[in-house]
Each structure stands twice: as C-alpha cells, then as structure tokens.
C-alpha cells in the first residue's frame, strides 16, 4: 500500500462524507460547509496526483479551486442569509416552495 493510495483513499472518503452531509443534514449552513469538505477532498486528490507526476499543473488547479471556492461562498452566504431573513428559519424543509 503506497502513500499515494492512502491519500487518494482519504480524498475519496472526504468527498463521499461531504456528499453524505449535503444530502443528509437539514441546516443550510452545515450543508454549505459539507460542500467545502467535498472541495477539500478534490484538492487533496489533485495535490496527490501533482506530487506523483512532479508537475505543477495540479497545484495550479488547486489554486484556481481556492478562488472558485471563495467566489462560491461570497454568493452562497448572502443567498442563505436572505432565505433565513425571509423564512425566519435555517431549516431546509421550510424552503420547499422553491421547487419548480
């Protein structure tokens, strides 16, 4: 068992746990944080592959993912705050009227 396999397994576990959290939890901020955990799992796999290949491409991609995560949070937090202000709750099940 190489270290790369251990790291990739950890990346898979983090991504899957984040996915489980997004689907299972009901608090909208916790769901956002689980999405961040999924991004972290992807970052770990990219860094592992970049380390294996010895190329800076994976690090470049990780850097771009940092920027995308910052942009995502900058949009998601105001939307979540507006929803909470309108519905007076952080429970996901109060927003079911958003369904098309």
């Amino acid at each position: 068992m190489t270290d790369a396999q251990v790291l990739l397994t950890l990346a898979v576990a983090l991504f899957a746990i984040g996915f489980l959290g997004v689907v299972v939890r009901r608090h909208i901020l916790i769901m956002l944080m689980c999405m961040e955990l999924m991004l972290n799992g992807v970052n770990l796999s990219l860094v592992t592959f970049a380390h294996e290949q010895g190329s800076p491409l994976g690090a470049v991609l990780v850097f771009l993912i940092f920027v995308v995560a910052a942009a995502e949070i900058a949009i998601a937090i105001p939307i979540a705050l507006l929803l909470v202000r309108r519905k007076r709750t952080v429970d996901l099940y109060a927003y079911t009227d958003l369904k098309g």
């Binding site: 939890r25 009901r26 709750t89």
Partner: peptide, 9 residues
C-alpha cells in the same frame, strides 16, 4: 433557533 431541531433529513 429551535426551528432546526431535527438533525437529519
């Protein structure tokens, strides 16, 4: 906030 008492969906 007591509105989100349930932990899981």
């Amino acid at each position: 906030d007591p509105s989100c008492a349930e932990r899981f969906s």
